[in-house]
Design a protein around this nucleic acid. Structure first.
Lengths: 237, 237
DNA sequence: GTCTATATACGGATAGAC
DNA sequence: GTCTATCCGTATATAGAC
């Protein structure tokens, strides 16, 4: 799969996040008409990601947000009760939708190597399609309250488990070498995250997301099959 | 090499950074006695890293810093002229010292595989010894001014070049396969950074820095030698 | 449902005592 | 060389008009 084939999901996702933001905060949001509320939430969502990714969420003022979104101070506070709640609302709702999309997208391959490749591409392409959100979530998670921060860590572990499970199955099937699936999964995740964290570097080098995907898949397979040729009999433990 | 063998460098480094901070800002720092100035700079340095890593540099107030360092507001402003300058001073001085230590530490191996392993361990162990600084530098670099941000990017690229050069030499010597050394170096760096960015994860799993080093070295070598067995004649391009 | 105007507090920075 | 006290700008949040 290439990114071009994947990318129609992007706009859908943003709309979904904002709809779910409304659903999850129906009582505290003043606007009653659904269409208006979702439209304004999208303005707020986009402006928040844009400003926070440029200067940081703390440094972004609600006045900035007002200017960038086109909504007045008063109108903004009809959608959240504090700046802190805005952060929590964007991050937790976004994370839920992303998690669901990842789970839906990671299905159906048979062969371990193909399955691992598909999972890597799904993660990478989703992070590319929603890059502003992924960057935001990574950088601002530390400003969440203790409880929300815990949930963010859990979701990091959950996505990692997808890779670990594939690797473990592959190992048991004899397709992969005797690697520690948790460590391998962690390293794969680190490589995937670098793509949306260091955008400037890859843009400068003209590395496309498809090429990056190829490289990560190649690295992951090398990691999981290193030394396997030496004992082609299959299972190693 | 293990981390235990490496780790005596840690305290030295912090002292060096503070000495160089003083040297680089001699005229703007009010304190004239060197010993006093360095001692206070160390208090400021430690308190800044601790507070900023907990809640972010923007969210840390100068009053917080005063409490944590034991110096009064007035005394703090005898060491920097603005909070922004404090950030720039800590980051740029720290980066310079780190860069020098890295260059000094990455020398002397002959064989490509051994050289790559040594470079990875040096980077990883230094980031472990100075973890608070590395985390701080990664997370707060985006709050620098345009010019300083550019210098930070350059130093990221410079450290990456160390790996790329080793890989290229190894490839030309026939020890490594036909990999893109820039991509491989970028992926290795991403794995190294994950160690100080996701401390909680590896602490929770009881992964030691020595074990992590082994895994990254293993992954890097797998990446650089994948497919080599298939054409053992050596050079591939 | 959205706006303007404002209350209130807090942070950066400095003046001047000791 | 260090501290206390204070100035001043600006940020969050809200009240109330339209």
């Amino acid at each position: 799969m290439t990114f071009a084939q994947f990318s129609r999901q992007a706009q859908i996702s943003r709309g979904e996040i904002c709809q779910q933001m409304l659903a999850g905060h129906r009582e505290s949001i003043k606007a009653k008409k659904e269409a208006t509320a979702v439209k304004n939430l999208e303005l707020i969502f986009d402006a928040t990601l844009s400003l926070a990714n440029e200067k940081g969420f703390q440094a972004m003022t609600v006045r900035d947000l007002s200017r960038a979104s086109g909504l007045s101070m008063g109108a903004l506070y009809d959608y959240f009760t504090s700046k802190e709640e805005l952060l929590e609302m964007v991050l937790s709702t976004g994370r839920q939708v992303i998690m669901r999309l990842l789970e839906e997208g990671t299905r159906g391959q048979e062969e371990p190597a193909a399955e691992l490749g598909a999972a890597i591409r799904t993660h990478l392409f989703l992070s590319e399609a929603m890059q502003p959100f992924f960057f935001f979530a990574y950088m601002e998670a530390r400003h969440l309250g203790q409880e929300q921060k815990e949930r963010a860590k859990q979701s990091e572990l959950a996505t990692e488990r997808v890779f670990a499970d594939i690797i473990e199955r592959g190992r048991k099937a004899g397709a992969f070498a005797a690697v520690d699936q948790h460590m391998a999964a962690a390293l794969i995740k680190a490589m995937l995250q670098d793509w949306y964290l260091k955008r400037w570097k890859y843009a400068q080098r003209r590395v496309s997301v498809d090429r990056y995907a190829d490289q990560v898949v190649r690295a992951a397979l090398a990691m999981c099959t290193a030394g396997l040729e030496a004992s082609p009999s299959g299972k190693m433990n």
